[in-house]
Design a protein around this nucleic acid. Sequence first.
RNA 1: GGCGGCAUAGCCAAGCGGUAAGGCACGGGUCUGCAACACCCUUACCACCGGUUCGAUUCCGGUUGCCGCCUCCA
Length: 466
Amino acid sequence: MTIQLYNTLTRKKEEFVPVTEGEVKMYVCGPTVYNYIHIGNARPVIVFDTVRRYLEYRGYNVKFVSNFTDVDDKIIKAANELGEEVPELTERFIQAYFEDVGALGCKKADMHPRVTDHIQDVIDFISLLVEKEYAYESDGDVYFRTRKFDGYGKLSHQSIDELKVGARIQASERKQDALDFVLWKAAKEGEISWSSPWGEGRPGWHIECSVMARQLLGDTIDIHAGGQDLTFPHHENEIAQSEALTGKTFARYWMHNGYINIDNEKMSKSLGNFVLVHDIIQQIDPQVLRFFMLSVHYSSPVNFSQDLVESAANGLDRIRTAYQNVEHRLAVSADNGDQHDIWLHKIQQQQTAFEEAMDDDFNTANGIAVIFELARLANVYLLEKNTEKVVLEAFLNTFNQLMSVLGLPFKEKEELQDEAIDRLIEERLEARKNRDFARADAIRDELKEQGILLEDTAQGVRWKRS
RNA sequence: GGCGGCAUAGCCAAGCGGUAAGGCACGGGUCUGCAACACCCUUACCACCGGUUCGAUUCCGGUUGCCGCCUCCA
């Protein structure tokens, strides 16, 4: 069985075959760090973290690189407004980024390169393009000669002549052709800058990804990913720069995630409806946010609203509860017997179903459906009087494996550390034995106030936090 | 103008040639001292109109309605 994935380049689902067997080189375009990230920025991070996790689950050795754009117009503007130096500002938001996506369960990439650490590489890269006459200097700027690159438009499936009539293309006196894009920008007075053969300046936006991907992963990478909007022009330009230089395929598979809407409206600065991860995770369990995003296929748009997140929270709760209930049974009453084969088989079937879902273009929505089925099976199993240790353990193990792929690990089993609560639970047990239900219910209510929910089962009292 | 996406139950969302997974919410039942957890049951003319096919939610064409991209927005 192989993984199929939708490749923006070919507009088809293709079998995934990495250049080197067993190894995946993956590059995901990261944020421009001039503010806290919003949930729209978080989607690709979550989605491609999950892709990476699944590839690893599948046994691939994944080299995962995600960059920071730490110098550009917006950053310079923000730094000016805040009266802060650029490096200071970017460092601050890079740390905030790690905190935010860490909370969302995203692993760190193997490398998080920053443009400003690769200035010389950028200059070398551009110099080679100039040598090959794919680029030219003009008044301190350096531009890419778009028309000279044959495949331009192959990713976004735009014909170069249609682009010409596009609404927003702006001619510039410095450009030879309106379609050319900037590789190196001459510095304006007082701007942060580096010396180059073309004078003081800084890298253009697109060049950094080409440079760092090549530097860290080589001429040809397996998967290049990012938000849908990056398809054009960003990724199109990356292809042009890289392939013009190396003459080799830059990236074999291109993956793009869909957008997030807020209450059915596009999230945008001008509407003022963007939601910062930093803020929202104060109110919403970050795992719920992640679960919510993964309940939709990554390429579809997803709508964000209070109601939708709440219903996702309820769903995740159901899975967590099932898990805890199995844990409880294992701790309290696990038998040995010989009735386990059929159940072990059912559990195995779910794992296979999960893999089939994920093999199909990382269909996390279907993967989650399988986990719900696993939860249902676990609950049904717990209805049995005699439950076997091997089966209970198999449930836990499978839950753990599948949820780890989604980056949604279960919390460690908690021991009640509070003696007062312990005593109340004991007292309630006694009260129930004496059929003093008024007292028993009073205790249950009291604990509920404290966020401890009690559940009576045939195997004793079970508790969980609300 | 060009390129593309989407329209499936009250809501969310899979499926993409053999008359519809899953979740949330609602209702009914079972379990429980009562609850909770849970289990079972119930709930869909798959936007509209044509066509292809033995058969279409799934393919093709058209219509309507949303949405994205077309040089620096994830």
